[in-house]
Simulated scan of single mutants.
Amino acid sequence: MKSLSILLHGSYNGSNYGDILLAWLIKNIIEEEGVNCILNNASSYFHRILGKSGEHPLRHNLKGVDGVIFGGGGYLTTKKIGIRGYKLLLLTHLVPMLEAKRRNIPYAIVGVGSGPIHDPILQRISKYALNNAKLIILRNQESRDYLRKYNVTNGIKVTADLALAYTPNMIKIEDDIQAERLLATLPKGLRVFLHVNLYNPHGGISDIERGCEILVKELIKYAHDDENIVFIIGSDYESKQCNEINRTLHNMLPSKRSIVIQDYNPWTLSAIINRCDVIITTKLHVGIIATSFGKTVLSFSGDQKIKRFYEQINAGERCIELKSLERGDAYKQLKNFIYAEPINIEAQRELAYESLRFIKEFIKKLQKEPK
Results as ranks from 00 to 15, higher is better:
Pro187Gln: 11
Ser292Ile: 09
Ala223His: 05
Phe193Val: 14
Ile229Thr: 03
Thr185Val: 13
Gly234Asn: 06
Pro201Cys: 04
Val297Phe: 11
Gly234Pro: 09
Arg210Phe: 00
Val278Thr: 13
Val192Lys: 03
Pro187Thr: 11
Ile279Asn: 06
Arg257His: 00
Asp263Glu: 14
Lys295Ala: 10
Leu249Gly: 03
Ile245Ser: 03
Leu183Pro: 13
Val196Lys: 00
Gln178Lys: 15
Leu190His: 05
Arg257Glu: 00
His224Gln: 11
Asp263Trp: 05
Arg181Lys: 15
Arg275Glu: 11
Gly204Phe: 02
Arg275Trp: 07
Gln262Arg: 06
His250Pro: 02
Ser299Asn: 13
Asp277Leu: 12
Asp263Ser: 13
Ile279Gln: 05
Phe193Asp: 03
Ser299Cys: 15
Leu298Thr: 10
Gln178Thr: 14
Leu253Ile: 07
Asp207Leu: 08
Val297Thr: 11
Leu182Phe: 08
Asn243Val: 05
Met252Arg: 14
Val230Tyr: 01
Asn246Lys: 01
Leu219Trp: 01
His202Ser: 10
Ile205Lys: 10
Asp263Gln: 14
His202Thr: 03
Ile288Leu: 10
Arg257Phe: 00
His250Cys: 01
Pro254Val: 00
Ile279Met: 14
Ile259Cys: 02
Ile245Lys: 01
Ala179Lys: 12
Ile233Glu: 00
Ile233Arg: 01
Arg247Phe: 08
Arg275Asp: 10
Gly234Leu: 02
Val278His: 05
Thr296Trp: 07
Ile173Phe: 08
Phe300Asn: 08
Leu194Gly: 04
Ile177Asn: 13
Arg181Ala: 12
His202Asp: 11
Val286Cys: 12
Tyr199Glu: 03
Pro201Tyr: 10
Glu244Tyr: 06
His202Ala: 04
Leu198Val: 12
Ser206His: 05
Cys212Asp: 05
Tyr199Leu: 08
Lys217Pro: 00
Asp226Asn: 15
Leu183Val: 13
Asn200Ile: 05
Glu218Thr: 04
Phe193Gly: 13
Leu269Lys: 06
Lys221Arg: 12
Asn251Cys: 07
Asp175Thr: 09
Val216Arg: 01
Asn274Lys: 14
Arg181Asp: 10
Asp175Arg: 14
Trp267Gln: 11
Phe193Thr: 13
Thr248Pro: 02
Asn246Cys: 04
Asn243Glu: 11
Glu244Trp: 05
Asp225Ile: 09
Glu238Asp: 05
Ala271Thr: 10
Ala290Cys: 12
Lys221Phe: 03
His224Ser: 06
Thr185Phe: 09
Leu219Cys: 09
Asn243Arg: 09
